[in-house]
Design a protein around this nucleic acid. Sequence first.
RNA 1: GCGGGCGUGGCGGAAUGGUAGACGCCGGGGACUUAAAAUCCCCUGUCCUUUGAGACGUGCGGGUUCGAGUCCCGCCGCCCGCACCA
Length: 843
Amino acid sequence: MTGERFDPSIADGRWQAAWDEAKCFEADSASDKPKTYVLEMFPYPSGRIHIGHVRNYTMGDVLARYHAMRGREVLHPMGWDAFGMPAENAAMEKGVHPGGWTYANIETMKGQLKQLGFALDWSREFATCDAEYYGHEQALFIDLFENGLVYRKESEVNWDPVDMTVLANEQVIDGKGWRSGAEVEKRKLNQWFLKITDFAEDLLAGLDTLEDWPQKVRLMQENWIGKSQGLEFSFDLSSGDKLPVYTTRPDTIFGASFVAVAADHPVAQAVAADDATAQEFIALCKRGGTTAAELETAEKLGFDTGITARHPFTGAQLPLFIANFVLMDYGTGAIMAVPGHDQRDFEFATKYGLPIPRVVAPSVDEAAKPFDGEAEAGEGVLVNSDFLDAMPVEEAKAEVISRAEKSGWGKGTTVWRLRDWGVSRQRYWGTPIPFIHCLNEDGACGVVPVPRDQLPVKLPEDVSFDTPGNPLLRHPTWKHTECPKCGGAAQRETDTLDTFVNSSWYFLRFASQPADKPFDAAEIAQWLPVDQYIGGVEHAILHLLYARFWTRALARCGKLDAKEPFASLFTQGMVTHETYSRKDGPREVYYTPAEVDRSSEGAVLKDDGQPVQIGKVIKMSKSKKNVVDPEDIIRDYGADAVRWFMLSDSPPERDLPWSEAGIEGCGRFVQRLWRLFGQFDEAASGEDKDLARRTHQTIAAVAEDIEALAFNKAVARIYELTSAAEKAKPSADRNHAIRSLLLMASPMMPHLAEEGWHALGGEGLVAKAAWPQVDEALLVNDEVTIAVQHKGKLRDTLTAPADASKDDLEALALASEKVQRSIDGAQIRKVIVVPGRLVNIVT
RNA sequence: GCGGGCGUGGCGGAAUGGUAGACGCCGGGGACUUAAAAUCCCCUGUCCUUUGAGACGUGCGGGUUCGAGUCCCGCCGCCCGCACCA
């Protein structure tokens, strides 16, 4: 029998050790069982596990444990997304080595994950900064190169002149470097690119097959890929050049009243070459910020070049402007402007007094309708457009494209918003790009891949971070090598790969990890695709798109036979908490939940007993101090209460408000279940048909809920059956209910379940036990409650046999005194009977 | 601007078109106890000058239906993503 109270401080460690010893969670690729791959997005080892990780991994853990109970061979691995900037920042601030810092964090965080009792296959653990892992990654990068999916190109980057490094767009704040505060420059650098655009069409089409992905994520990727179809054609310029433009609205071509190019456009550069005013204007355009807010308010500015462009149909000469709202890196960097039907063109034309012709109208009769202060981008029919008049928009688009193609001055084209993926980073803490630049003056060798037998290209250990810039570049010896082709002097590539490359194939390495190659295709085929992938929605685009791309790219290289890496995706909500703060003059001072005593009346600071302001429930963040440390709450309540809280109440896709009262309630329930286990009575016999039914119905429903990731509902059902079992008298059926509750709760509260299983004399570990069987016959009740309505309003309920006929139910309903009182002698026109549910009498 | 999501008690939230508010939290009352903790029981949407198998009630206004939180149309509010993408 079980003791007074369940003590997690003893039980948690005991069972974690038992699982380790039994190697409970090591996945066997050779197993005959059907396979299930459950994966949560692996963490960046920033220092400590935070509550968001706990929620994410608890969900995955419940699934992993549940599927194992259902007889599946489960792969549930964990590792570390270990390269990245924070390690270098720590190196600069604290003078530690990024590697030492990272591995120490991994040690800490692994210990924290173990404290939560996750059913992880630690035998497959790796960090992406392990030379073994990034060496295989280098080999894959060379594979992509050999298959024409890697290239070098000069491209413009954000350059921080103080830190001497490239910054990502997110690291540029108000035009200044986020660390140095220095004015960011645009620089052209030779950078490595991956040809993700080769797969644009396929990545887009593949979204339709991902039925078990959130629609939101699919739409976000669709928008990101940004397929648009239109017409590309060239204007003949008065300068003698040809100017290619791209438009998605070829139908409005008769409404074009000017032409515009981007400031970086060759035509603009040519004009500026001998025109100082143009030069000034271009400089002005470049200075403009790129944040959303700035663009929102930015005025449309233009510079009239004096050049004109000949309209392909009318022959009219349209003025050519350099304009600040035209982007060089989309389409051709030049546009035909149709002010009547494009808002930006409208604003520009208004400002510079250019004509705004109408070429689309609600009907042909409204060809002269004036504009109401803005462009009209909607549907309609063409007007003032010669041979297009009266055609609907779609038809007119096709007609213009067909005429342009016939006359040879333009063609229908598809343009993508998706850009090739620039993967060069001028950083130390990343995968070295495995290439060598031959320094031979004849240039015959060029850039050469590192021979495979020389992989991995390892990062040097002896680096310093006391001066800005890339430590690999200034390392005294590391970069010097010889050309693999000619044997002459050569220099290693000193750029490293974007960390998103590391996370683009880690799920493959988890499934298969031979020493001599990145993975084994046959073994991958056993496990992939990942059956359930779980992570934050913040990765909806970049990581998830890159991983889909890598899977396709590797398939093209013949490395594997798979298309989509993640069959089902789930994006979980954040953990939130209210904030506590006080005004200190103009500043708001925040306090952590641990510094505050919270009651239903309000909150006071423990230090001085004076009230603090209770703020909104928002995402936990260090700056607002509304954080709880997982280790603290595990210590106070035990791993199972924390896990249970993560699953209770809020649906997993929504935000979960953390509350002290909530976790206390979960702690109480852990004890309540424990006491119920103590009620298990070997000697009890006899039936409790009602409880037996509820037990079987609960088993079926909880299974269904877990499979649908509706953990909050599964939790509610376990509460209900617990109440029922507590109230029931001892019987064999009650024992069965208790044992079933233990098994059903085991994926969620595994330590409590093991302790109870042991106390109840269960064989082996509950982690290895089977999910309870459902007796189908007991899923249906033989008596049901029938609602009786009069004109749709509830008037009575009655109990009837589940198989009662429609006629019987009608008769029973009409016999009800309450119903008769409501009908009050009125003529009955109709009686609707839904067997097993209700009777509705219509008068 | 474009795209998407969501509005249900004091709070988190349940509810194949069929008894709205399951379950949890908070709150109130009671039992046990010398007392407290722990535990257990009951109540807990609003209204009532008909306390009743009453009325009202799922953001607002319409509609479909025997029956609408759920489906349709039109609003309002909040949240998220993308964004001078031609």
